[in-house]
Design a binder for these strands. Structure first.
Length: 373
DNA sequence: GATCCGTGGTC
DNA sequence: TGACCAAGGAT
């Protein structure tokens, strides 16, 4: 058999499989009724970046209910969007989501139907641009995500490790991608990757591509894709401060850029690498310094008041980020809202504040410490 | 190319 | 139980 014929056969088998086994997902409902809304495809693709379908689904449903159109999203209060995103992670996605919606509305309210136009929008990269073109507009595009990387690496038993193998993977995916139904093909590949050709123990016996899979023939398909070794994760230490006034907690808003950017948060010090902490300073000195860092924009007078509050140690929580682990030490103090000004949030409604998980954990720890009696 | 950027599930 | 991973993008 000619090589090109093998590619065609793989593609056909996959598309036939997809007809029978496509997963039912919230953002697919419209597509399965031939009513594709580029806004919804875009929203789902942004949410699905490095995020499981199970985690993204409830957020997607909340978003489309609250903001059914790109115009509605563009007109939303940014703080509301950030708060709805809380818990999904990678918060630059939410900031770029808002920016992107505004740009689309400003230029007429329609998403571009080509990769070049989509790539120019914030938060849309190679993968997302191709996915939107194929799924929302029904045009041919070569869609490569982590699923496709894994499936293709196994299908052709690619020995080159990631990420160096990406050009090879893209080339092979291009050969497999049909002119028609590129969107179905991409989603079929992702479904295969998510349900059959999974990371650890692929169930090759039920895979429609098994007859053509070189990785399966090696006897150890799970060995692919071969990956470069990862770096170790350092530990950082930081201080978070719970300033209460009656039954309310003082919250701040983090700077737009960087970690947890734009999110509501507890005031906290810089998070320093464990190895870089000066061990000569006393605990008291370290805590004073941490307070200064946690309230940088506060007037000097307010900072002085903060220093003199009766701080109580509430233990610490641990949290794992992508590239470091954090030990966050928690201190609390009672004050009055006119003594230390800022946004105070009722403790009983703290879940509505849209706090990232690390700060939710800290508040929970504080409540456990102070209300256990 | 390498690094930064969350979270929850899995084994 | 710690390490790995999931529909990646920006710099």
């Amino acid at each position: 058999m000619q090589k090109s014929a093998v590619y065609r056969e793989i593609t056909t088998d996959l598309l036939n499989w997809y007809q029978r086994h496509a997963r039912i997902l919230p953002w697919r409902t419209e597509a399965q009724q031939n009513k594709v809304d580029p806004y919804r495809v875009w929203l789902s693709e942004i949410m699905l970046q490095q995020t499981t379908t199970a985690h993204a689904a409830p957020y997607y449903l909340k978003f489309v209910e609250r903001w059914p159109t790109v115009e509605a999203l563009a007109a939303a209060q940014e703080a509301d969007v950030m708060a709805e995103w809380a818990g999904l992670g990678y918060y630059s996605r939410a900031r770029n989501l808002i920016k992107c919606a505004k740009e689309v509305v400003a230029s007429g309210g329609e998403f571009p139907d080509n990769e070049q136009g989509l790539l120019a929008l914030p938060g849309i990269g190679r993968y997302t641009a191709a996915a939107i073109v194929a799924i929302a507009f029904g045009k041919r595009a070569v869609v490569v995500d982590a699923n496709v990387e894994r499936v293709v690496s196994r299908l052709f038993a690619i020995e080159t490790p990631l990420p160096a193998s990406r050009p090879i993977i893209a080339e092979e995916t291009d050969k497999l991608t049909p002119d028609l139904a590129a969107g179905d093909f991409a989603q079929a590949m992702m479904d295969i990757g998510a349900t059959i050709c999974v990371n650890r123990q692929p169930t090759c016996a039920i895979c429609p591509m098994m007859p053509h899979c070189e990785g399966q023939k090696t006897g150890n398909p799970a060995a692919f894709p071969i990956k470069a070794p990862k770096k170790i994760r350092p530990t950082r230490i930081g201080y978070a401060f719970i300033v209460t006034s009656k039954d309310q907690i003082l919250l701040i808003r983090r700077p737009d850029k960087g970690l947890l950017g734009g999110m509501r948060a507890l005031p906290s010090s810089e998070w320093l690498d464990q190895s870089k902490i000066t061990t000569t300073a006393s605990d008291a000195e370290t805590e004073q310094q941490a307070i200064k860092e946690a309230f940088p924009s506060f007037p000097a007078q307010a900072q002085k008041k903060l220093m003199t509050l009766a701080w109580e140690k509430q233990g610490h929580i641990e949290h794992i980020f992508t590239h470091f682990a954090l030990e966050l030490r928690i201190f609390s103090a009672e004050t009055t809202s006119d003594m230390i000004e800022g946004e105070y949030w009722p403790i009983d409604e703290i879940d509505l504040a849209g706090l990232p998980t690390v700060f939710k954990k800290a508040v929970k720890k504080y409540l456990k410490q102070t209300r256990k009696a």
